[in-house]
Design a protein around this nucleic acid. Structure first.
Lengths: 217, 217
DNA sequence: ATATCTATTATGTATGCACATAACAGACTG
DNA sequence: CAGTCTGTTATGTGCATACATAATAGATAT
């Protein structure tokens, strides 16, 4: 058999990947079990387990107890993207970051927001809107609804100097959330803020975590 | 000490998560080493290792040999999204999927494409454009450039019955790629195809793998 | 025939041990 | 003083073993 020289989980992982890619184990087929593979590669089952777990994490195979491991019918292409702090995003492009607070107001949120957050309609919410600039060109419009009850100490924060984006990331630990992307046409007010033609297409990121939503361009 | 009842890596993972979220280990601080934590929890170092590795995979801590494990300064919020087959995406919404091939042509690709793919300008490329419908409403416009040299057998495929999206996923194993999202205004031709007003904002997914690119709405 | 119990099987996980490796600190040396 | 050689430390990984658990197939009982 094609014994591998090294018996690291990495090399085994690569070998399994190769066999899957080359259709030696076509989509839908059952892989040998861990014990057999361990015997073939001359290593411990733990090592094969690690390699196969990695494949499962990547969405390439489906593993079930007793049923064994089989190649996914349709390889899921899985994308991981990191959402950075806006300031860093700008600075990474070697541009100068500037930030302006446009509005800060405690008021009732529209039903569209409260329902998405699963909050009582009459909860007072903190509404922040602001602009981020890169080298003085409009970069991003931030529109955020925050439930003050969920973030102690937020009433006292002066968002003129710190962006909400950054303050929340640093001070409001969150454990889960949801995110959606879409495209829409900018209305007149937004277009003006972004110095773009009326009706221009803007990219919208809609986020909801523990306690906040933020439309963005 | 707050001894945990169970010593599964999951429970330890949760406990570590809790301490990080509650700022018991604030951002930037150094965590105890694996051996100490193992002693505290009364388990093997391997188990702690597994729990901490998970934290590192999630981007919450930074681990380096000899340096130890420290909490990331800015918690990276990491999003994982799965790119499904379009047909399944439509069918998951309980809509009927229909597909039409608009164009199939072997020709030279514009420089914009060849340069992104790192291919010679004069390579003949297969250009496919098609529409996907959900319940007869335009759902997605697919515009794809394929390097036939990279996908053996593609010349013979009849894309009237199978969508390129699906055929490629099933028959062209790929090992890596890149993806980008953006928004743009639809031009007249595209707007017509999508039965949308001229200039409407469309969501664009730009993918490049081994050998293909696909703008989309 | 249907329901229930009982292996059987493959993966999941915990443990103790050993050694590998990256990175750094401090001693040694020319 | 610069350069090199040692430890030392914390994580990374491999192994053998054991037991846990999900899921199924087959046997048994009603």
């Amino acid at each position: 058999m094609n014994e591998l020289e090294t018996t690291s989980w990495r090399s085994i992982h690569l070998e399994l990947l190769r066999r899957i890619n080359e259709r030696q184990w076509p989509p839908g087929s059952l892989l040998p079990n861990e014990a057999d593979l361990a015997a073939e590669f001359g290593c411990a089952r733990t090592t094969v387990n690690r390699a196969m777990r990695e494949l499962a994490d990547a969405g390439l195979v489906d593993r079930r107890r007793r049923a064994g491991t089989r190649v996914m019918l349709l390889p899921i292409s899985r994308v991981v993207l990191d959402i950075p702090i806006i300031r860093l995003e700008v600075e990474q492009r070697h541009a100068q970051w500037r930030y302006t607070l446009l509005e800060r107001q405690v008021c009732l949120a529209p039903g569209r927001i409260t329902s998405r957050l699963g909050i009582e309609r009459d909860t007072p919410m903190l509404h922040l809107t602001s602009m981020h600039f890169a080298d003085n060109h409009p970069f991003l419009h931030e529109d955020r609804w925050i439930n003050p009850a969920a973030v102690p100490g937020i009433e006292a924060v002066d968002f003129f100097t710190v962006s909400a984006n950054e303050w929340l990331i640093q001070n409001a630990p969150y454990t889960g959330g949801d995110i959606a992307f879409s495209a829409m046409n900018a209305d007149r007010a937004l277009a003006e803020l972004l110095a773009a033609p009326d009706g221009a297409a803007v990219f919208v990121v809609d986020r909801i975590t523990w306690n906040k939503t933020e439309p963005i361009t």
